[in-house]
């Protein structure tokens, strides 16, 4: 199945080393990996295994020490800071562990935030956001501020925000880590539905077994290396 689809992410011999207290930490060590369009894949492994670092590099937030990261046909190492900013805005959807909604904006405003950055007209924004919010079971909550919503509701808004721009890939960093198990299941169901309905590519970092069980492909990391990669 993978071979019939186009690669959306290609990591080639990617290393990311940090220097911490005069010691070199090999956060990601010679990783080569391809993610294909429409995949629902999970990067899993214990804390410090390099999951978030890989997501950050794919999301153009971090640069590899060596190797190449190509996302949606763009070699991220060749993009300037402002090009990376535009690339993130237009091609990447982020879902963070701690939701990271903007506290002064309502659910609707948070969801439309990236569309505003893209200068999408207000009518299109409203249409797209309201439709996604309805799909995510958030109808009627659009005027709530983050502090007036539960963790699950906030994470749903974050997913709407990530989906709204129709990105090339949604990168979700531990999306179920801060919600109760019932909410986690419902969020996963919704993301799976979006993946199936819209063919949206999802790449999770997680050590939540429920996420791993639902993933179509699991990439296990250990000490910055791929220990296992199976569908």
């Amino acid at each position: 199945m993978q071979s019939k689809r186009a690669p959306i992410v290609t990591l080639t011999n990617v290393c990311r080393f940090y220097t911490q207290a005069a010691e070199t930490v090999r956060a990601v060590d010679d990783v080569s990996l391809t993610i294909y369009t429409g995949e629902f894949a999970a990067l899993c492994g214990p804390s410090g295994s390099g999951k978030t670092t890989i997501l950050n590099m794919i999301g153009a937030l971090d640069n590899p020490t060596s190797g190449a990261v190509v996302v949606d046909g763009k070699d991220l190492g060749k993009l300037s800071a402002s090009e990376k900013s535009l690339f993130r805005r237009d091609r990447i959807g982020f879902v963070f562990q701690a939701y990271n909604l903007i506290p002064v904006l309502t659910a609707f405003e948070n969801a439309e935030f990236v569309l505003v950055l893209q200068n999408v007209d207000s009518e299109t924004r409203r249409e797209r956001i309201m439709s996604l919010m309805e799909q995510m079971g958030m109808k009627g909550l659009d005027n709530r501020r983050p502090d007036q919503m539960s963790g699950g509701q906030q994470q749903r808004v974050a997913i709407v925000r990530a989906m709204a721009t129709e990105p090339a890939i949604v990168l979700a960093d531990e999306p179920t880590a801060n919600v109760d198990s019932q909410t986690a299941v419902s969020i996963l169901d919704m993301m799976a539905e979006l993946n199936q309905k819209h063919g949206m590519t999802f790449l999770f970092s997680t050590h939540d077994q429920r996420v791993i069980d639902r993933a179509h492909r699991v990439i296990r990391l250990h000490d910055g290396k791929i220990a296992e990669n199976h569908s």
Binding site: L61, R88, I102, F113
Partner: peptide, 8 residues
Amino acid sequence: VMLALGMS
């Protein structure tokens, strides 16, 4: 977060 989302 804002910068990660693509705000310049």
